[in-house]
Design a protein around this nucleic acid. Structure first.
Length: 421
DNA sequence: TCTGGGGTCCTAGGACCC
DNA sequence: TCTGGGGTCCTAGGACCC
C-alpha cells in the first residue's frame, strides 16, 4: 500500500517546553538562547512578530529584546529531550509506523488508518496537547517533501486548525505555485540561487523541470526533490534509526582561549562526554579526531583550522588513555601559536561494542559497499576520459560523463537514474 | 622502459537538515 | 567584547595497484 505521510512538528518547541513548566511565560514574548547564550535558537510567536530572527546573534538583538521586555532563557536540553520522549510515546498510540526525525518532529505513516485523515490528525494534535502540553502542527501528503510543505502551510494559515492535508491535483498545484523554491525541503540557499538564475522560482516550476537537466545541474539529490514534488516518494519512512556514523562533541568558547590548560580541560571533558555517548549507544570507535579552530568571524587571513586523527587498529571503547592522547594532540596544535575559540572531539567509523577486531564485524557489507563504489568509480573514470577525448577532437559528445552510485535505500529511483549512456 | 586500461580506496569539501 | 551544536549524503579527485 502506498504510504501517506503525516509530519508532526512542534510549534516553537523549546519555548513551548519552557512554558509547560512555567505558565507565567504563556502570554509573553520569549526567546531561548544557544550554548554560551550566543544566539537565539527558539522564539515564541510574539518574539517572531518583533522581528527577532532565527539564529540571530544575541548581542545584535539585545537592545530590541530589552526594549520589548522579551523573556530570555538559557537552553535546557535535558528538559527538551525528556519532553520529546513523551511526545513520541504519545504519537506511538496512533500508528505503529513512526520515524523520529528530529527532537521536535516525527513522520508517521497513516496509510489505511482512517478515511478522514484530517480528522484523525486533529485528534492526534489534541491528544498531544492534552498529554504533554506541547502544541503541534501536522502536514499530510503522499511524499515527505510534500508533507513538509503542507506543514509549512498550516503555520502560515492558522485557519487550518493545526492540520493541513495536501492531496488532490488542484490543491497541490496551488500550494506548489505559492511556494518559493527556497522554502522547499532539501533546497538550501545555494541551490535556490542557482534555480532562480535559471528562471525557476516556484515549487510548481521545479516540479515540471526536465529531469535530465536537473540531474546534470544538481545531481541525484536534486532529481529526488523533483520526483517528490511530483508525488513519487523517494524517501521512505525510517522506523529504525540507523546507528550513528560519527559522534561529535564540540563547543565554541565565550571568549578566546589564551591558556593551554583551558584547552586541555575542555578537550578532556568533551572526550569524556563523547565516550559516554558512545557507550550509551553500545558502540565502539574505529577512529578519533580532535580539532581546534579560530573564530569564523575574524579576517580570513587570521583564520586557522587544524585537526588530528588517530585510527585504532581494533575497535575500542573510549578510555582514559585515549583521552590523554587527545590532549597531547591539542598541545601539538597549540604550539603553533594560535588562539582558538572552538575545539571538539569526533569519534568515527563506529561499530558495535564488543567486536574485538573491526574487520571481523560486518566484513561482507563493508566489502560489498567498497566493491560497488569502486566499480562505479571505474565507470565514471572511463566515461570521463572518453568525454575528454571527444571534446579534444571537437566531437559533440552524446554521453553524459557522470554515472551514479547505487544505494540500497533508493534502489527504485536509482535504477531509473542509472540509465546514462 | 613506457604507456594505457582497468580497478580500488580514501579524503576533502560542498550542501543540506534540525 | 559578544555570532550554536550535531548530523547526513554526494562528488571530485588523488594515490595507488596490477
Amino acid at each position: 500500500m502506498k504510504s501517506i505521510f503525516a509530519l508532526v512538528d512542534c510549534n516553537n518547541f523549546y519555548v513551548s517546553c519552557e512554558r509547560v513548566f512555567n505558565p507565567r511565560l504563556e502570554p509573553l514574548a520569549v526567546v531561548v538562547l544557544s550554548n554560551n547564550d550566543g544566539c537565539v535558537i527558539a522564539r515564541s510567536e510574539e518574539a517572531k512578530q518583533l522581528g527577532i530572527g532565527m539564529g540571530a546573534a544575541f548581542f545584535k538583538v539585545r537592545e530590541k529584546i530589552e526594549k520589548n521586555k522579551v523573556e530570555v532563557l538559557s537552553s535546557n536540553y535535558a528538559l527538551y529531550k525528556d519532553m520529546s520522549d513523551r511526545l513520541m510515546e504519545t504519537l506511538c498510540n496512533f500508528t505503529p509506523e513512526i520515524e523520529v526525525y528530529s527532537i521536535d518532529e516525527a513522520f508517521l505513516n497513516l496509510a489505511g488508518l482512517s478515511n478522514n485523515l484530517t480528522g484523525y490528525c486533529r485528534k492526534i494534535a489534541e491528544t498531544v496537547k492534552q498529554w504533554t502540553g506541547i502544541p503541534v502542527s501536522i502536514g499530510i501528503a503522499e511524499t515527505k517533501t510534500l508533507a513538509k510543505m503542507a506543514q509549512r502551510i498550516v503555520r502560515r494559515f492558522s485557519k487550518a486548525a493545526g492540520v493541513f492535508e495536501l492531496t488532490g491535483r488542484a490543491s497541490i498545484d496551488e500550494a506548489l505555485a505559492q511556494t518559493s523554491v527556497e522554502n522547499i525541503w532539501g533546497v538550501g540557499i545555494k541551490t535556490a540561487i542557482k534555480l532562480k538564475r535559471a528562471g525557476i522560482n516556484t515549487a510548481l516550476a521545479l516540479r515540471d523541470v526536465d529531469v535530465n537537466w536537473m540531474r546534470q545541474c544538481f545531481g541525484v539529490t536534486g532529481v529526488r526533490t523533483v520526483y517528490e514534488l511530483r508525488g513519487i516518494s523517494c524517501y521512505e519512512l525510517e522506523e529504525q534509526p540507523p546507528t550513528k556514523k560519527g559522534i561529535t562533541v564540540s563547543r565554541t568558547f565565550g571568549r578566546k582561549i589564551e591558556e593551554i590548560y583551558e584547552l586541555k580541560e575542555a578537550i578532556a571533558s568533551y572526550a569524556s562526554r563523547a565516550g559516554e555517548k558512545l557507550r550509551e549507544q553500545g558502540l565502539a570507535a574505529g577512529a578519533e579526531t580532535i580539532f581546534v579552530m579560530t573564530s569564523r568571524f575574524v579576517d580570513a587571513r587570521k583564520r586557522y583550522f587544524n585537526s588530528h586523527t588517530v585510527s585504532f587498529p581494533t575497535a575500542t571503547s573510549y578510555t582514559p588513555e585515549l583521552i590523554d592522547g587527545a590532549i597531547r594532540s591539542v598541545e601539538r596544535l597549540y604550539r603553533k601559536g594560535f588562539l582558538f575559540n572552538k575545539a571538539g572531539v569526533i569519534l568515527s567509523d563506529l561499530v558495535p561494542e564488543g567486536s574485538v577486531q573491526r574487520n571481523l564485524f560486518d566484513e561482507s557489507d563493508r566489502q560489498k559497499s567498497r566493491r560497488l563504489m569502486g566499480a562505479v568509480d571505474a565507470v565514471n573514470t572511463r566515461l570521463h576520459r572518453r568525454a575528454l577525448t571527444w571534446a579534444a577532437e571537437g566531437i559533440n559528445q552524446p554521453w553524459r560523463t557522470k554515472f551514479v552510485r547505487r544505494s540500497k535505500r533508493y534502489t527504485t529511483r536509482w535504477d531509473e537514474l542509472a540509465e546514462v549512456g
